[in-house]
Design a protein around this nucleic acid. Structure first.
Lengths: 231, 231
DNA sequence: CGATGGCTTGACTACCATCAACGCACGTGG
DNA sequence: CCACGTGCGTTGATGGTAGTCAAGCCATCG
């Protein structure tokens, strides 16, 4: 992790985009511009909450451990997204870990200053609430999927969500290339199972995959696996 | 469902408790006091969002369907709790169904008026945001549990959460008595499995259950099942 | 060059969902 | 009063899904 001196990226920063011009100098005085290498953790589950992060560039996975071995990826964050907001509120400790999947550049704001901003900037507060509301909806949909959707559907869903968030490369692949481990942790299963399902889906002509690159050929069929078969 | 004329229960209503006195008359002019019988739905998944509900008394289950047969109970709401806040935001339709488990008395506020309240009452907005934040944390913890915790642990956890929220009756039973169906839907499993696990837990002397009444005898052991065995 | 980490594959199996059947309590209508 | 249906609780048998274990392969890296 490395600290930079540069100013905030106004066009990308979730916070700055929503601040009045007169508040920006205060933000700049209170922010830190940090760089993380691939694989580095911005913070870990159980760490005391120090502040909130706004992503300028790169990709971050937000995940939760179960025991020593297993983890579930709860969400991915890219440019413009917030990370660490799960620490806001009565919680003393981050309930999740945030890890850089690629080199990441973020704006860090201390909890105190962020709370001041919320007190002053009601539009920000309102939008943060809306953000939480939509996160909650997503989270509960995923809960239901984990509870009732078979693994094939969950993997299909994971691929669709990834493509929706990260788009496609010029070659037509999903814009974020993940390890099987991470894909498994996102779909809530094991990497062996993910592998088997990827080859199965390739065999059916629904996707194509070479190494880490995955291309969705038939999104409609994929989506079909995410629905319950009519009883 | 039945409409009453009475005023708001100031001591219980989430909204009124957080309003300045001068705002209360407006609330009273814009609210409806509604009664629902056991088994009635306050609203259903897919219904257009009309407003937000605050529970005075009774218990509500908030659940999400999967296909025609399966459902997952996402949350229980009791006196003082909010229901329908999942409709706030960009969503046009409720993403979940809310059903009365016991006769329920609620305060209903139309979306328009509630949004006006949020614009005026920043403390309310702030607390609503905090509420969302903690709901999100709970939801994500549950996600992880559904993904990685074995069924026995999920049932154990469900019992502990129910006791935490609803306390115990004078007889020592969990304060909310659920059908096996509902308990299963809360733990994310089937009712047969729930039954087998309950008898198993009773055999181990960890709980006692007669019909719908369940008593936790050894909470520590129950909690043990909710943790990963050290690898 | 060995070590490490991710990928690929096969064999095994346990967990848990599904199906099926019965009992019981309850309410309802003939 | 009885017959019946319905909803829930209880139990056993069965099988499939998907997790675990194990081993080999390939790349990268120190």
């Amino acid at each position: 992790m490395k600290k930079l001196k540069q100013g905030c990226d106004l066009a990308t920063c979730f916070l700055c985009k929503r601040c009045l011009p007169e508040w920006l100098p205060a933000v700049n005085a209170n922010r830190e511009h940090l760089l993380y290498k691939k694989g580095a953790a911005l913070f870990r589950e159980g760490d005391p909450v120090t502040g909130i992060y706004f992503v300028y560039s790169g990709t971050v996975k937000v995940h939760k451990k179960w025991g020593e071995e297993k983890e579930l990826i709860v969400r991915f964050a890219a440019a413009g997204d917030i990370v660490g907001h799960r620490g806001i509120g009565s919680e003393q400790y981050y309930p999740i870990t945030a890890t850089a999947l690629e080199p990441v550049s973020v704006c860090f704001i201390s909890l105190d200053f962020f709370n001041s901003s919320l007190r002053v900037n009601h539009q920000l507060l309102y939008e943060l609430m809306m953000f939480y509301a939509s996160e909650l909806q997503l989270s509960e949909k995923q809960m239901r999927n984990l509870a009732h959707m078979p693994v094939k559907g969950r993997v299909a869903n994971a691929l669709l969500l990834l493509q929706e968030k990260f788009g496609t490369t010029p070659a037509g692949n999903i814009g974020l290339s993940l390890s099987r481990q991470d894909l498994a942790a996102y779909a809530g299963t094991t990497y062996e199972t993910v592998f088997r399902l990827l080859t199965e889906l390739s065999g059916e002509g629904i996707i194509r995959h070479t190494g880490r690159d995955i291309q969705i050929l038939d999104a409609a069929q994929l989506a079909g696996f995410t629905r319950a078969t009519q009883g």
